[in-house]
Design a binder for these strands. Sequence first.
DNA 1: CTGAAAGCGCTTACAG
DNA 2: CTGAAAGCGCTTACAG
Lengths: 330, 330
Amino acid sequence: MRYTISDVAKLANVSKATVSRVLNNSKPVSDEVKKRVLKVIEETNFQPSALARSLSNRQTKLIGVLLPDIANPVFSKIIDGIEKKAHEEDYSVLLCNTRHNEEEELKYLDILREKEVDGIIFNGFHSSEKFREKLSKFSIPIAVIGYDDESYDYPAVLIDNLKASYDMTKHIIDSGKKNIAMVHGPIEDYCSGYQRMEGYKNALLNNSLKYNKEYMKKGNYTYKSGYDSAKELLKKYSDIDAFFCANDMMAIGVMKAILEIGKSIPKDIAVAGFDDIDVASVYTPALTTVHQPFELKGESVMSQMLKLLNGKEVERQIVHKYKIVIRESI
Amino acid sequence: MRYTISDVAKLANVSKATVSRVLNNSKPVSDEVKKRVLKVIEETNFQPSALARSLSNRQTKLIGVLLPDIANPVFSKIIDGIEKKAHEEDYSVLLCNTRHNEEEELKYLDILREKEVDGIIFNGFHSSEKFREKLSKFSIPIAVIGYDDESYDYPAVLIDNLKASYDMTKHIIDSGKKNIAMVHGPIEDYCSGYQRMEGYKNALLNNSLKYNKEYMKKGNYTYKSGYDSAKELLKKYSDIDAFFCANDMMAIGVMKAILEIGKSIPKDIAVAGFDDIDVASVYTPALTTVHQPFELKGESVMSQMLKLLNGKEVERQIVHKYKIVIRESI
DNA sequence: CTGAAAGCGCTTACAG
DNA sequence: CTGAAAGCGCTTACAG
């Protein structure tokens, strides 16, 4: 059996209240008594029950983190950052892996409510109406990571996808490429889909290059969708001399397709990605891409959460710096 | 304010006990009463507090998962599998990212005790004496994922690293390579370090090839350690015609080093890895490696956990199948 | 089938 | 500085 606060109180010849006070340093306790209590705690190896404490406290020191795919390096790094910061401040994270699935998202929201987490961090992409409505019923701090759009009113942490995408496209143009294709993400994905596409488009137009819809293909961020898109585009349009991709996995698929038809990268056809996941730097040829500070973003959103939990003000958005990392592929 | 069971009881004109009974279906309740209670629950949108329930129940439906690095794809896939299975059975996972750090491990053990999780799953590699001792004080179900050695007495889920390593080395030998170098992991890491090295060694000896310690380098599973090891070995020994690496990231580092000195893979020098992380199939050249079913292992260890939680017997070890996946690098 | 009451293990006014 | 008591929101014998 594990010891309870009553056991400790009895053994130390004090009240439970007093034990609680030395435990939490919440009220002055005389040195002598404190020493006695501490000794008993030490001897019994007493650890208070977070359950009981939370029930009376109304705080669980638990943060629910809803992410669409924990096995995706983008998200595993974000959660790494969140967990790090949370752990520093004695919060724990309850992992909610929604698998890009609305049902799961909703189900998890119920669980978070039941478990009475102190706060919720989530990635807002493709969250349904139902989800948003359900979420709005919560009266605890909520923050968004790696996504944002007008419909939300929660503090968000992200990068400037539009500008990053513009800059990268500009780099490709400055390298002398003229016919730049793009494999973009789903438009409904406002940040990584729509905005990255818009940045590309704006860069073309501002640099008097033609913006040709035929050169664009929608992928779903997987290697395969990059590969397939490139295969198709390369077959149809032999003048394509560069690809900009909305993420690295698609860029790697594109590179594979290019290498397979015997073209060289970047001489014949250049490729640029987005995210700078580990593979990017390690691939041959090493991928030129937009570096995002995922862990930092994770820590940052948790910092926002901490502020909210402590009743402080937070900015509506925190925009982190990205970096154009030029390697071998363009 | 959120409704409590007392509110519901009052509104439905029954006792709390009755509400509890319809909530949990724990005892028969007359249809009429049940209907009335359900209606109130519906109207109030009442959700019971898991906290209060757990306190009286003595179960939290929480599983603590201790992993050394959540951002490592190997572990993020495992936790994906664990979470999936757990979620199916209404358990949630408390993420404990220990960052290869003993202090954190110990600290997390305290947290898991405080939070009164129902079970603990952990990856046993490089757990200290202190950790083992502290863990042994827990009287809840415990299971090990992706590791095992004599010192543990918990059910473990893993693959046969020795045999997998042997098979892969055999494949390299059968392909006609004679001077096979190895980049292995730390020996203290019994499964991925020691056993994978032993498999390699046994394969060489059983096939009358020389087992040359000079051809072996210790890495730490990172790309860089693979790269550096290969650089050094290639400079010293020009007769090396293959590398076997204890994981894929090191294999990719090795490939980079080989490509940099203008040798071709696998004609001049072959390379094989271990794990089959996403990059392996996508790299150019595609990496021949040992495929491990990470998600499945995760689900599997959670299944073991579930059995333990339900008081059933479990096997001391579950050994999953690996697969030698032959691609381009050998 | 249903309810009153005790109990889970803490915290926190309140009183002294 | 210290303690007795109520309360957090459930579950579960016990009695009927």
